[in-house]
Nucleic acid binder design. Structure first.
Ligand SMILES: [Mn+2]
Ligand SMILES: [Mn+2]
Ligand SMILES: [Zn+2]
Ligand SMILES: [Zn+2]
Lengths: 139, 139
DNA sequence: GCAATTAATGCAACACAGTTGCACTATTAT
DNA sequence: ATAATAGTGCAACTGTGTTGCATTAATTGC
């Protein structure tokens, strides 16, 4: 089964319409080895006959997040990055961001659970852990 | 020694000019119990006779970060928040962000040090830990 | 198949945090 | 006092992301 077929199947499984734009977008994310920005995804979709509107892409990415096909990662550069969800990566995990090239990858589950002490009366909901440094390509 | 005097002293210690704008801004941050956005700081400076320009405030905040008087905290809402540096808070520490009111506080040093596993060839430089949840006022 | 319904798309306009360039002003050094 | 330097204000700009609305495409019910 090729990439497009796999993307189509995943989109269909949500129960919503498997439009060409959704399938194309998901196939880009399926083949990516790291988290991609809206820009990077749009660039990879450029060569297609019919360029899709940037607002549509924003809406597709939001829809995919809601459907848990992907997850979005906040960064210190005010840009969201998007990464496909795998079984492994579905739950909570840390991220790495390169200080030089700004690339973001998801990290394998580190057995990290030292709940930091919150003030009394505070409720913990999520833990976001980002490691910053230099990736192997930038060293 | 009152707040303004203390702010003035801290600004002077940097070696750079202790302008009224810098002193006023720092005194706002000195009296804050949590991290403040550019907006919130500007609002607190409103009542002054002479309103300072928003660009100037951006530059003052950047200057204060460079001088290590304050530190800036990235959030998922694309807004920087600024917090005074104390001896305790100078080094690495975690942050808490309320999912309801968006307020951010610095957390006391939790003894966490389980370096999450990076791929080979990756260099670790900083660890950013943000706990998200609900603060005591929003529960 | 065909009309009615519903969902997706494209386009323009907008929101908003933060930045840049440049002239003007205040401070410091000589 | 004059010159050099640092800080400020204003206008214009950047970039990511959002909203409203008309148009188009896909489904649903006959
Ligand atoms: Mn991830
Ligand atoms: Mn802090
Ligand atoms: Zn890199
Ligand atoms: Zn709160």
């Amino acid at each position: 089964m090729n990439l497009i077929e796999r993307a189509k199947e995943l989109v269909s499984l949500t129960g919503d319409r498997a439009t060409a734009n959704r399938v194309r977008t998901l196939s880009v994310l399926l083949s990516a080895k790291r988290a991609l920005t809206h820009r990077e995804i749009a660039d990879q979709l450029l060569d297609a006959k019919k360029q899709l509107d940037r607002v549509t892409l924003y809406r597709i990415l939001e829809w995919m997040s809601k459907k848990s096909l992907i997850h979005k990662i906040a960064g210190d550069d005010r840009v969201w990055r998007f990464r496909i969800n795998t079984e492994i990566r579905a739950h909570q995990h840390a991220h790495f961001k390169c200080n030089r090239c700004a690339k973001v990858i998801c990290l394998k589950d580190s057995k990290y659970n030292p709940t930091p002490l919150l003030p009394v009366g505070y409720l913990l909901q999520e833990i976001e852990l980002t490691i910053k440094g230099v990736c192997s390509e930038c060293i």
